[in-house]
Design a protein around this nucleic acid. Sequence first.
DNA 1: CCAGAGATTTAGGTACGCCTAAAATTATAG
DNA 2: CTATAATTTTAGGCGTACCTAAATCTCTGG
Lengths: 264, 264
Amino acid sequence: MTAPSHISASLEDYIEAIFHIVAEKQAAKPRDLAGKLRVANSSVTGALRLLAGKGLINYAPYDIITLTPAGAAYARDVVRRHEVLRDFFVDVLAVGYKEADEAACGMEHAISKAIVERLVQFAEFVEVCPRGGEDWIAGFRRHCERSSAAGSCVSCVDVLSGALRGGHKSKAVKLNTVRQGWKCRVIKTASGGAGRRLREMGVTPGALLEVESAGASGGTVDVKVKGYHISLDGGESGGIYVETLCREQDRDDIRRPEGKRTLL
Amino acid sequence: MTAPSHISASLEDYIEAIFHIVAEKQAAKPRDLAGKLRVANSSVTGALRLLAGKGLINYAPYDIITLTPAGAAYARDVVRRHEVLRDFFVDVLAVGYKEADEAACGMEHAISKAIVERLVQFAEFVEVCPRGGEDWIAGFRRHCERSSAAGSCVSCVDVLSGALRGGHKSKAVKLNTVRQGWKCRVIKTASGGAGRRLREMGVTPGALLEVESAGASGGTVDVKVKGYHISLDGGESGGIYVETLCREQDRDDIRRPEGKRTLL
DNA sequence: CCAGAGATTTAGGTACGCCTAAAATTATAG
DNA sequence: CTATAATTTTAGGCGTACCTAAATCTCTGG
């Protein structure tokens, strides 16, 4: 009797659309669905038969469409995934509503239960924690606006700056002296042609980078910047000055295990 | 000559797998792909023909597989989406590695460029902002561990508690007196049978909720808790005491517009 | 070098998920 | 009450993406 716990992404879209239409005008008709999902009328018929076969909707040819209790429960779950994602993008990541909604639309079918719960908890935490809150997100929004520039958090309650971090002022060191696992901030890049390539790839003053491997032959350094992996030869890394921030912790429970990955 | 900017989710998985195999052992063979993607050998052949047809891989029957420059660029992009998502889940949301990797695997095909950039920026911001940092995330991790309990941020640098928030101590009010748009925290729920249903649905002391509509006929109140929408009748909402936190702002640029939504 | 083992491709099938065009049904206007 | 319009379904087709089974190719040991 239980409905299958997993239906295709496409059918989830259909059931989600039915949910919204029913919430608005009692019952849905194929036309409404075709319009909302931007598919041909004939495509709707097939989907409805599948959903009816799974016991999620009440449907008979030429009749109106409503959700069964199981279908309504399934729809609520999909809608929650959608809304949690969208609200996270809007409220925490400060993404515009339309963009957030579209992204959520595509991602809602793959997101896991655990991640949904964590997104909810994180949004709550930001709101509740004395170090978070509206003004903190506002600080993030400013950070985004001029992110290609300094990239730091200057206007984010500067008062706390020293107090919380203990104001550690690392001195500038050459990137090729930094050891594996350290994160650092770029202070200065080589001027001129040699540095240009790197600057174009995101290695600019203020950028955060993480040293992924160092000390290989020829002083090559592999770094990660903004999620990009970049290899620098000895000359390049010697022209970059950075301040070290912290060492990536070796937390076995959360760091990627060695060996081959199980999934893509 | 340019490769099509968009290929199917399935082909993205193939090209991503090829990327990782090639990175490890120079060239890939269909067998490796079948193993990594958990599909039959014969399924691989078809995918390879499609990818070769799009100019993303070098492939001839019975020959080894390598990426073309265009394919390598595409693969790097997919891998970055995957890693950015996974690292965000692990480093910010404090999700376990394996779970994060699996979720990223499913979501990487739908995530938009803008969201990827925002995730990167947010992870950087958390690390760089004096109000964020390692210990702040540690506070979030603790918050998660006992989230079903108090739900607040007690151990998150209590020292700052009053200073930052101005220590506003709202008094407890009945939920049915709260007006639309306000967020509040549950202080006490009705004991006994009436309250049980609500407690089971997430309305527990410490929970955050947002009043979505109030003052409808019969004192009905619609609230949002943990992403769930719940309707409370007059009796139920009268037995719940909350403290109000803040009013949802009317920021037209980021709040959901009125009228019908364009997408699901 | 040649036979068997293993890897790869081909052949043929199923299930989605969308389409257009035509047929059937329902709604509406005169 | 009928004729026309609108909606919905059916029929048939296409592309993706997987599968099993059989044919073909490559590799390797004796």
